[in-house]
């Protein structure tokens, strides 16, 4: 599964430009799924199984897009001003490298006047693409770029850009491959534009009209030096979400995941996230309401180019979802 993770995290895919990630995933799931389609906004939807006794129409979602930058202006000397695509983390920007769709690299520099000591604002930063002037700049206003950083395998722990949420995509692909018989009609949705407002999940959830929805996404941890209080740590198993800024999980879905983990002897943790949210927030309020929950992969340094996960947590998430989906969903 590490090869799959490596290829997914290194692919280019800021919100709105998920094509390459979609192609990679489509190639993986094409042989296994009953049907694979791309909808009007670009979500990739792979379907397996059909509703048997006690079965439901289930939507599983992981987002393909990653945070990035968009070119907003090129000045006379060829320096590129930019805006964020999704929630870019200013602390992680200076000295970072970005990669455009054509592979071209730029480095992020900062103005020096008026920012001494302080963290520069986004509009005080620029990208140097090595151009001499505006006309020779190889990019144009509206071009997007992702952060550039290779995948690293530290043994038990994996580091890369875009673990948020390619690790969720990898989990879904793996679940799809391992699932086999299921009483449910399961739609694996690889969503677009999560980082800019959960947009792909909103439309795909409406289209699928699910009876049960689970997002697989990353969550932050409280296990680093002087971290904010949070009872989630790396390596303690996937986290079953109770609450974040955008949703309160359906109690039945939460219980179903917890009971499955306990039955299967899979370590798990309960999660209350005080910032951020996931695709499940909009899946839950689709149409007349959908029972929704989240299975989170604990991740350090979220929204930096070096997001770290624990491989055992990832495998645990796959096992948990496979075990849950092979049986009926008793969500009360």
């Amino acid at each position: 599964m590490k090869e799959l993770i490596k290829s997914l995290v290194e692919a280019f895919g800021p919100s709105g430009s998920e094509d390459r990630v979609r192609d990679l995933i489509a190639a993986e799931v094409g042989k296994v799924a009953r049907e694979v389609r791309t909808d009007a906004l670009g979500n990739l939807i792979a379907t397996v199984g059909s509703k048997g006794a006690g079965g439901r129409r289930v939507m599983l979602a992981a987002h393909m897009d990653e945070i990035g930058i968009v070119v907003s202006h090129i000045d006379a000397k060829g320096f590129v001003r930019f805006g964020g695509v999704g929630g870019v983390f200013r602390l992680a920007l200076i000295g970072s490298r970005v990669r455009f769709a054509d592979g071209r690299i730029g480095v992020i520099g900062s103005e020096q006047k008026r920012v001494e000591g302080d963290l520069p604002r986004l509009d005080q930063l620029f990208i140097d693409v090595g151009a001499k002037d505006r006309d020779s700049a190889p990019v144009k206003v509206g071009d997007v770029a992702c952060f550039d950083r290779p995948f690293v395998d530290l043994g038990g722990r994996l580091v890369a850009k875009a673990m948020d949420d390619r690790i969720g995509c990898a989990v879904l692909v793996q679940v799809l491959k391992e699932l086999g018989e299921t009483p449910h009609e399961v739609h694996f949705v690889f969503t677009v534009q999560e980082e800019v407002g959960l947009r792909g999940a909103q439309t795909s959830a409406y289209g699928i009209d699910a009876e049960l929805a689970i997002a697989v996404d990353v969550t932050t941890t409280g296990d680093t030096p002087e971290a904010r209080t949070m009872a989630v740590s790396l390596g303690s198993g996937p986290a079953v979400k109770v609450k974040d800024r955008g949703m309160l999980s359906h109690p039945g879905v939460r219980r179903w995941l917890v009971e499955t983990a306990e039955r299967e002897g899979i370590p798990y943790q309960l999660e209350v996230l005080e910032a951020g949210t996931t695709d499940a927030a909009v899946m839950q309020t689709t149409r007349a309401g959908v029972p929704a929950g989240v299975l989170s992969i604990p991740t350090r340094y979220v929204h930096t180019p070096s997001e770290m996960v624990d491989y055992e947590d990832v495998l645990g998430a796959v096992r948990l979802l496979v075990a849950a989906l092979r049986g009926p969903a008793e969500i009360g």
Binding site: G222, T229, M230, A231, V242, K243, L248, V272, E274
Partner: peptide, 16 residues
């Protein structure tokens, strides 16, 4: 309110 952590016999919490 919601419990976020059990810590040394006390409960940490957040708001809902």
């Amino acid at each position: 309110l919601m419990v976020t952590k059990v810590e040394d016999g006390f409960l940490r919490f957040t708001t809902v």
